[in-house]
Design a protein around this nucleic acid. Structure first.
Length: 435
RNA sequence: GGAGGCGUCGCCUAGUCAGGUCUAUGGCGCCCGCCUGCUAAGCGGGUUUGGGGCUACAACCCCAUCGAGGGUUCAAAUCCCUCCGCCUCCGCCA
């Protein structure tokens, strides 16, 4: 959620952001009003509570004096009367405090509910509008040219004995698959290359839980707009994560971090699960859109004032990975309306897929600024000793989908696939050949 | 799955049985100051986090915070209930 102080100080900025996202601008005034109500209710309650506490302490004092007098066998009647009087007064106040507390609680809940609905304030420069309003930031390489009719990744994968969709469907249903033989090896090689690069740049590699509790899923921001994308295990009230971002965002939840040595960077390796609800009929062929895949994900905790620079760094490391697999790609600046609530800006790297004649997303890096961390209560200690909310960012280093781009772009007329140079040491093969 | 023990403001710890006349005790660490050729020791003070008020984002005042959430009570670290985590033992299973 966004910072209430920003909302109070600069509501126009938040209104503009909501407008760019195509979200409800009126929410801003709604929440400001709720904030006013919450604060006045809180003041009333706290005042009454303070009074009640004072009176109640008098009861305590009176009771103590009474006890002492009894021990000494003195006259207790007067003390007893005083104690009872104080108790009656406190009792009367107690009723009022309970009512005021309930009212303050309600006002607080209404306020927070509204605040949570406001999306992160977009970074200056993010294009307005919906899914199709992205801007192209950079194009790297020309679409791969072939002097033969290229095969699609599934055809190639089947000939190589690398992908088995049919048996995947038999075992798990549609959108499930087996990676077999060189296919399994290729995925492991790719993911390992991602981990190796991350470690080289100082990331801590992490193998993360893929089942998380509701508060983590909620805090990471995955139960709002796209809740129906998430698998939920009813019997245990746990959620299957669609990315290790969720677990890595939860990793430092409730903690106060020491960022004096720079950002904390983690590289998460995990299986990812997505229901793909509402995408019936889309990308039904092959492993472009599946319910389960593997991913290496960068995750960074940094000071908010460094978030934009960190975002550029994550993008740079994604580019390094794409360069290693030697495929043409472009980078888009996602439009505001296509950002999730937590993201203030998102860059996607999209690789050229020859048989589709278009670019498909291979990586995605988001700057969530303090939005995610505020919900998860992750802070850092400033040089002045104050606590402030950290910024969180994430970005992809490799996923199963990358196999699509690798297979299709590096295929030869005979159905073999040349392994990109950087990947060869991880795979131990230079060329994949049909069985 | 069963039985028991534990969870206190960075770390350790008192308080919980018998609710109150205290503002959660003390030590370690850390920070500031004093003293001091230097260091150590010594002395004094400070040291959870969130929210609200007032403001200069200071000082100060108030509310909450003893694993979490409820409840009882004028009053809860303390009593009751539910949940979570850790430890020990038993059972079951990889």
């Amino acid at each position: 959620m966004i910072d209430i102080k920003l909302l109070r100080d600069d509501p126009d900025l938040v209104r503009a952001s909501q407008r760019a996202r195509g979200d409800d601008e009126g929410l801003v005034d709604e929440v400001l009003a709720a904030d006013e109500r919450r604060r006045s209710a809180l003041q009333e309650f706290e005042g009454a509570r303070a009074e009640q506490k004072t009176v109640s302490k008098d009861v305590g004092k009176a009771m103590g004096a009474l006890g002492a007098a009894r021990k000494q066998g003195g006259d207790t009647a007067e003390l007893e009367t005083a104690a009872n009087q104080a108790r009656d007064r406190a009792g009367a106040l107690s009723e009022r405090v309970k009512a005021l507390e309930a009212a303050a609680g309600e006002a607080g809940a209404a306020y927070e509910q509204g605040l949570r609905r406001i999306g992160n304030v977009i970074v200056d420069g993010v294009p307005s509008g919906g899914e199709d309003n992205f801007t192209v930031r950079e194009v790297d390489g020309d679409p791969t040219a072939f002097d033969f009719e290229p095969l699609d990744h599934l055809e190639l994968g089947e000939r190589l004995g690398a992908i088995d969709m049919e048996r995947g469907a038999k075992v798990g249903g549609s959108r499930f698959y087996f990676l077999t033989g060189v296919g399994a090896q290729l995925e492991l090689a790719l993911l390992n290359m991602g981990i190796a690069q991350a470690v080289h740049h100082g990331f801590t590699p992490m193998i993360t839980p893929t089942l998380v509790k509701a508060d983590v899923m909620q805090g990471a921001g995955f139960l709002d707009a796209h809740a129906d994308e998430v698998y939920r295990l009813e019997a245990d009230d746990l959620y299957l994560t669609g990315t290790s971002e969720v677990a890595l965002a939860g990793y430092h939840a409730g903690e106060i971090l020491d960022l004096s040595g720079g950002p904390k960077r983690y590289a998460g390796w995990s299986a990812c699960y997505r229901r793909e609800a509402g995408s019936y009929g889309k990308d039904t062929r092959g492993i472009v859109r599946v319910h389960q895949f593997h991913k290496v994900e960068m995750f960074s905790y940094c000071e908010p004032q460094h978030a934009e620079a960190e975002h550029e760094r994550l993008l740079m490391w994604e580019r390094d990975m794409l360069a290693k697999i030697e495929v043409p790609y472009r980078i888009i600046d996602t439009a505001a309306g296509d950002l999730g609530n937590p993201a203030a800006r998102k860059f996607d790297c999209e690789a050229w897929v020859p048989t589709q004649g278009r670019y498909r997303e291979l990586t995605s890096t988001s700057n969530c600024t303090t939005y995610q961390a505020r919900r998860l209560n992750t802070r850092y200690r400033t040089a002045e000793g104050r606590t402030e909310t950290v910024a969180t960012l994430n970005g992809t280093l490799a996923t199963t989908r990358w196999l699509v781009a690798i297979l299709e772009n590096h295929q030869q007329a005979d159905g073999s696939v040349v392994v990109p140079h950087a990947l060869q040491p991880f795979l131990g093969l230079e060329v994949l050949r049909p069985a």
